[in-house]
Design a protein around this nucleic acid. Structure first.
Lengths: 212, 212, 212, 212
DNA sequence: AATGAATGAGATTTCATTCAT
DNA sequence: GATGAATGAAATCTCATTCAT
């Protein structure tokens, strides 16, 4: 076997593995872990039944674990990086909030399956600690608080309890996530009047427009 | 059979039915619908296997439906009644918020099982429409908005977007519910510094303390 | 349900359990533990597949364990009791040997399945210790040695190493058992010329007929 | 390909084949034919899964057959040759027995795996007839009987039923084999007091020490 | 010769449900 | 009303074997 052939085979194997992971992620998200049979995963991935155990010797559970840990890491990286408020120094606060919300909404839509799993499945805690999840939100809160503090120093908004403000923003975002996960509300962007209204509500307050 | 015997029987039957409902509610909440076997329910209720089908001829599904509909109605009633802001006309706004939060926290703790089921199980929508769930939160929002508007008329707080304020409050409460459901945070009361801080944050803003 | 009905049901249940045990014992003996599928057991017992797990929640393994422990106990009791050389004080030694061999041969034929399992399956040692098996043969040796010593005191045979004599007898019996288990030799009784010849060989020696 | 390369290849091929045979023999002996998976053999031999079918196109069964027939032949040759009582004409009978037992014990230890397979697996009879096994022991009996007859002619021991004597010796040896196979007794040599005692018991009798 | 991905039949086990008692 | 034995479909998982590379 030549070196290239070996590489090709490895690629195909990785491809098959990904097919299984993707099929499983979709089905776990739709029907839950216990509501998803391994046969349905194999059928969805258009693969033979036994192959799952070739790639995931621990079976359904290992497949689940792999999905949870790999995707959680991915979400954490997406959520924690690629954003620097420094780049937006001259942008009005409203617009930063809008682009921030849109960024979150995009991450949610791109990862809705794993987020649904994280929220709905008890067993995820066997693989990622609750602390990991808390840290993720606390980090976001801190970033928002720092941002607001900076703007207050610039005089754009008033002095206030920045941590509480950040918690308020995160509350709204988390709420949006949960309603998306429960399919109660459709995907929305910061263009939506409702979102705009909330952003305006907060920025008005922060600017001290007490006599709206 | 005498009349008393008949009454006794009926009581016993109702008792058995409740045992099943309670066992099932606990287990569905802990392990999900698909993660809960009919046998485990019978075991938990300390009843014979077949008895479930006597009380719920439709089997596991009917048992689930009964739990969902009966308990959702209960939660809806608890959440929508027994509270009238009129009684608190002379109470400072902070205290109303505190007692309002405590009331919600109590409802959550008393009904955590069914709330967890409502959030985590897709199948509940076969029995209660999403509209029912939305209405529940929209109603609460409206009550809060009305309350704030009233206080603004009294001059206690400034004029503002009351619906947005109510949405902010509800965001915080829903967030608390989700974190409870996910067992990420322990039960908390309005006595907690964190809750007090948030309440102070909002009321300060609403009072126009723009120079905090 | 009346008391009698309850008894009847219990009897039927016990009957079903025995059907499973018997079918499994036969099949384990014929094809080994790993060569016997649970489906084949259910089919042999003419019962539904799932029923095995009603009676033996631990599945195939528990069924095997039950067979091993219950039948080993039975064999041990059969082998260790019901025989008292005192009753044969006036019987010639040859005849005692003959009846002794026949008694063993009967026990072997009646329990050939479990004996085959004990010899062929490694896993039996998870359930009965090797010491139990050794004790069984050592006890038999002791009984034979005591018997021979008694006969020597009566002058029927000469003084000798009675333990070695007993070991020689047990060797012959164990050999017979192994050849039966391996289906190399058919069942035989002490009436067989070969057996008679061996018995005569030993008794002649023990009587000091050194000039045969 | 040069001639040397071809030779090297052949050697490697033979080496790989032997790895498979050895791994399989060990595993079949430990876990039985049905308890040994083809994968576990490949793992143990540190070879790729499919390779087994290159060397043994008939798969697991052919591998088993090869092990059984090749090794049985080896055992038969070892047991039947390399020993000539003529060489020991002047050796006391006790010492001949001792060296004879040791020789058997060595053969047993060197071939314990295949002996265990022969005794425990029914399927061996598809490849070697029971007659082959019987012949092996009958031949040994005959050798022992001839040896004893010779010694009787020399006057070292008395006249007796030499076939029965030989059967007694073989009984003891077969017993030892079975207890080894069942891992009930550790390997032992003729130096062990127990073995010496038995040998003394028989030789004493054969010498007509009737008044021991 | 060698690799290990792929296959699908079959093994063990679980489970909701039925029903005779 | 109550019991738990019985059923069989379906779920999870194992395994010998094939085959493209």
């Amino acid at each position: 076997m030549t070196k290239e052939e070996a590489t090709l085979r490895k690629e195909q194997a990785e491809n098959t593995r990904q097919k299984l992971l993707e099929a499983a992620r979709t089905l776990f998200s739709e029907n839950g872990y216990n509501g998803t049979s391994v046969r349905s995963i194999s059928r969805q991935a258009e693969l033979a039944d036994g192959l799952l155990y070739h790639y995931f010797p621990g079976g359904k559970k290992e497949l689940f674990q792999t999905i949870v840990t790999e995707n959680f890491t991915k979400v954490r990286i997406e959520a924690s990086s690629g954003y620097c408020y420094e780049h937006y120094r001259s942008t009005p606060i409203e617009e930063v909030l809008i682009s921030g919300f849109n960024r979150f909404a995009d991450i949610v839509e791109n990862n809705i399956n794993i987020i649904r799993i994280l929220i709905k499945e008890n067993d995820v805690y066997e693989f990622i600690s609750q602390k990991n999840i808390i840290d993720l939100t606390e980090y976001q809160k801190k970033v928002w608080a720092d941002f607001l503090r900076q703007r207050a120093e610039n005089g754009e908004i008033i002095q206030m309890d920045f941590e509480a403000s950040a918690a308020a923003i995160m509350s709204y975002i988390l709420n949006y996530i949960v309603l998306r996960v429960m399919d109660i509300k459709p995907a929305k962007s910061a263009e939506d009047p409702e979102v705009k209204r909330i952003i305006k509500y907060y920025t008005d307050m922060w600017k001290g427009h007490s006599d709206k």
